[in-house]
């Protein structure tokens, strides 16, 4: 009876141990590919001079970056900001596209 149990257990072990070992090797490729980090928008890469302010993509990017800036507003030292945003190069904003801004809704 006892040897029967031991036999069964060792048979199970014989199957399970190689299975687990092998399957771990199969998953062990570049784990960085599977990691999802909650990244912040990298707003420093926005090139305003190339942006067309009638384009929903440009408006959406501005919105996201403005929200981000508002969140960290207290930390910002405005006196030290240089005036890199060149508004003269931006095409005129179209009122139609800005209507949906939540500030106009109340």
């Amino acid at each position: 009876m006892k040897t029967g149990l031991i036999n069964t257990i060792s048979k199970i072990a014989l199957v399970l141990i190689p299975t687990i070992t092998l399957s771990m090797a199969a998953t062990a490729h570049d784990p960085s590919m599977h990691v999802k980090k909650a990244e912040k928008a990298d707003c420093s890469k926005m090139d305003h001079s190339k942006m067309d302010m009638n384009d929903p993509v440009a408006i959406a990017m501005m919105k996201k970056c403005m929200q981000q800036a508002e969140k960290s507003n207290e930390k910002m030292d405005h006196s030290k900001m240089d005036k890199k945003m060149d508004h003269s190069k931006m095409k005129k904003m179209d009122d139609n596209n800005m209507k949906k801004d939540e500030h106009n809704n109340h």
Binding site: K40, A41, K45, M46, V57, A60, K64
Partner: peptide, 18 residues
């Protein structure tokens, strides 16, 4: 619809959590 026209930088900004 807009995805094929996006650069990696634009994509990053639009899809980031904050």
């Amino acid at each position: 619809k807009r995805l094929p026209s996006l650069t990696p930088e634009q994509y990053q900004i639009l899809t980031a959590i904050e």
